[in-house]
Amino acid sequence: MELWYTEKQTENFGITMKITETLHSEKTEIQQLDIVHTKQLGRMLLLDGMVMTTDQDEFVYHEMITHVALNTHPNPKKVLVVGGGDGGAIREIVKHSSVEKAVLAEIDGGVIEACKKYFPQIASELSGNPRVDVKVIDGIKHIHESKGEYDVIMVDSTEPIGPAVGLFEKGFYQGIYDALSPDGIMVAQTESPWFNRDLIKRVFKDLKSIFPVTRLYTASIPTYPSGLWSFTIASKQHDPLEVDASKIKDLDTKYYTPELHRSVFNLPKFVAELTRD
């Protein structure tokens, strides 16, 4: 008997994969957590039935949510990840030698522990690295308690439903602004330009009203709805379009490159229109 998993990504569209087994299933205090093995993409993490990451394509998301901002800031020393309990963003952050402290603020400890066991290549820096501080806390609360503390803040959230709703609100972004240093930068995953246009427009408008520099960029992630994914970066001073690619160091990446840094901001017309008033 063949087993297939289908994520209904909209009311009329979904993605389906053949699976060989369920490796882990639990109801944490926050959400339903499942890990399955797929024939095509290896192990896959599901939260409340939504695909979060897979063995085969995780590097795209984790590299693109981290390195664009970290290479835009001239000297990032303290970095915060809100969400991101799988550890992939932390793994990429500590590739930057300037970073003295990488803090993970994940509300669900169950995600951290499950990923340590089933995704060791993603969660590789969550244990034993003195530069990493793993906190099982409410990221929104932590933001509001951290005035001027961080050089870069990354919002590595699930989709804007359930426990992640507050991570897409203007008040949260104002809190991030206040938690950043005077030349700080934030970046957030902002969903699919095909299926979440209203959300992208709203988030971009909210961030633009708070930060002097706001940019939208995209990456190709096969398991995320539509495959075309967006990120929004907002900065108090530094513009990612002004980065000298020749000064970007090789970071042992699979997707992100110095040449790619600027090109990801060259948006298709229908996506660029989402950034206009």
Rank of each mutant, 00 (worst) to 15 (best):
L251R: 13
S157L: 08
N12R: 14
G83R: 01
I161Y: 15
R262W: 03
R91I: 00
V134Y: 11
P212R: 05
L207T: 01
L47F: 07
D156E: 09
I90W: 01
L207Y: 04
S220L: 14
T72F: 02
E106T: 01
S209P: 08
K95N: 03
R131P: 07
G162D: 08
L45A: 06
F265P: 04
I93V: 08
D138N: 13
L46P: 08
Q9F: 14
A179D: 03
M64D: 04
Q189W: 05
F231K: 03
G227T: 00
H73D: 03
G14V: 13
V94Q: 01
Y224N: 01
V243D: 02
E242K: 14
Y256P: 05
I122R: 00
T253K: 03
V136I: 14
Q31I: 00
E125Q: 14
R215W: 12
L46R: 10
T218W: 15
F172G: 04
P258S: 06
Q9E: 12
L45P: 02
P163I: 13
V103C: 07
D55A: 01
G148W: 08
E259T: 08
K147L: 10
Y61L: 00
L260H: 10
Q174N: 11
K77M: 10
T214D: 07
M64N: 11
I137N: 04
E259H: 05
M44L: 12
F265W: 09
I107N: 01
L46K: 12
S127W: 03
E100N: 11
T72D: 05
K147M: 07
A69L: 11
D138M: 08
G42Y: 13
T53G: 02
M154K: 07
I30C: 10
E149K: 10
T218Y: 15
M64A: 02
A105F: 13
A114W: 07
T28W: 15
E273T: 00
F59G: 00
I143P: 07
V165T: 14
P130W: 15
E29L: 15
L274S: 02
I161M: 15
V203R: 00
D34P: 09
L23K: 12
A114Y: 08
K135H: 10
G110H: 07
K205V: 11
K170I: 07
Y61Q: 02
A188I: 12
K254Q: 13
T257A: 07
R43V: 00
V94K: 08
G110L: 06
Q189C: 07
A105L: 05
A69K: 06
I143D: 03
S127D: 14
A219D: 04
T190S: 06
K254S: 04
Y5V: 08
